Every structure is written in structure tokens, then in C-alpha cells.
Amino acid sequence: MSELEDRFAEAVAAIGGVLKRHGFRKKRYVWTRVGDGIVHEIDVQRSHGNSAGSVRFYVNARAYVAEFDRAIGRAVPDDLTRANAQFETRFEEVSDWPTDRVDVERDADALGTALPAAIEQVVAYLDGITDAPSLARTLRESGFVLDDDLFAWYCATGRSSEAAAQFAAARERFGDEDRWPRLAALFDETAEKYGVPLP
């Protein structure tokens, strides 16, 4: 094994050490924590551009809430770890890690300190997703204005003001694009299904 691969293994071990303390279980480069109707997942994704002289990886975080899917009429699998996550982000978006990837050579001094600290921040972020309302808040605050499921959840649960706000935010951001009439029609279709008026 090369020196860079040794450093990669050390980085994965550092990440795993943090996640094990928080109740995550590891399978290869994926750590999963299953709660009452909730799944939190963090994985390490090796870069396709790696070579003998360069080893880089990304860290992704995901969350799934069964209650959210039930509200919009989607089937919930018996094994929640097989469900499609409703929220996904890269770890630099929710931590102090300064770049979009970890380079085991460039970041060698940070692998045992700053990297575990960033993973702690990611866990704390996922800890905030405990039910359907907190998932919806996370999606909204993360800018998921075109998320069909989020809009459907607002409509299905009688949150008409939030549905209208999402529609308005989508129109403001994408209203000048050629695709807006098609997007607006999707919003209209969902709103009509649940009897929610749109502005």
C-alpha cells in the first residue's frame, strides 16, 4: 500500500471513530444510523480522478424520514436503509471544512484534527433532522425551492402559507427561464390535488 493510501485509510479511520461514537454503523465507506423512522447516512466517495500520486475524496451526508414519505402517499420500505434519502448535501456545506474535497496529501496535517471536527459538525447538523417538520425546514433553508416532495408535503399537511412561499421563491428564482411554465404547471397540479390555492 502506498503512503497516500495509508493516509486515506487513516482519514477513513478518523471519520469512523467520530461516527461510531454517535451510533453509526459502518459498511465499507458508508456509515448509517437508524432511529425511529429516521435514517442518517454519511459516506466517503473516492474521486474518479485519483492516481498513484493523488488521492482525494468527498464526504456526503443524507437523511430520510419515513413520516415525510407517508404524508405524501409514498410507500415506506420495511428496511429504511433502502429508502431514497429526501435530503443530501456535501459535508463542506454544513461544516467548516474549507474545500469541496479532502486531498490526503494537501490536507495531511488536518486528517487527525480538522477532519474529525468537521465530521462532528455534520453529525450535529443531521441531529437536527428528527421528524418531518425538521426535514422540511432543512430542505427549505438549503434552498430546495424546486423540490416537488417538499411542496407536496406542505400541501398534504395543510401548510398552505409555506406552499405559497415555496412557489413564490421558485418563481422569483426561475420565472424568467424558458422552463418556468412547465415548472409552474407542476406546482399547480400538486396544489390542485390537495386543494391548496396558489398566488
Rank of each mutant, 00 (worst) to 15 (best):
L150Q: 05
T81I: 00
A136Y: 11
R179Q: 12
Y194C: 05
N84F: 14
C155G: 06
A185W: 04
E172W: 04
D78K: 11
A118M: 05
L115N: 01
A75H: 09
L183Q: 11
L135I: 06
E192K: 14
A169I: 10
A118W: 09
F174V: 05
E192R: 15
D96K: 12
T130C: 05
A83D: 09
A108P: 03
S160K: 13
T190K: 02
S160Q: 10
E177M: 13
Y194L: 03
R82M: 10
A163S: 03
D131V: 03
F144V: 02
T99F: 09
L183Y: 12
Q121L: 10
E189V: 11
K193A: 12
E192F: 07
L146R: 15
D176E: 14
C155I: 10
E88W: 13
F91C: 01
P197L: 02
L111V: 06
L183H: 01
E92D: 14
E92C: 08
L186K: 15
C155Y: 09
A156T: 08
G112T: 11
F187K: 00
V76S: 01
D79W: 10
A191G: 07
Q166K: 01
A85V: 00
D79M: 01
R182T: 10
R106M: 04
E105I: 04
D78S: 12
I129K: 04
A83C: 08
F167A: 06
T138S: 09
C155A: 11
V145E: 08
S161G: 07
R182Q: 09
V145A: 05
G112Y: 03
A83S: 11
A169M: 09
Q121S: 13
A108G: 05
P77K: 06
A185K: 13
W97F: 03
N84Y: 13
F91E: 01
A75E: 14
E177T: 15
T89I: 13
A165V: 03
V94L: 02
A164W: 07
D148V: 11
L111P: 02
G175W: 10
G175S: 08
A110P: 00
W153Y: 15
L111F: 06
G143D: 01
F167D: 04
R140K: 15
A85K: 05
A184L: 06
T113M: 01
N84E: 15
L135C: 01
L126N: 02
S95W: 10
N84C: 04
R106V: 12
R159N: 11
A185G: 07
D109W: 09
W97P: 00
V102R: 01
A152F: 06
T99P: 02
D176N: 13
E88F: 10
L135Y: 07
P98D: 05
D148I: 09
E105T: 03
E172N: 07
Y154R: 01
A185D: 13
E105M: 07
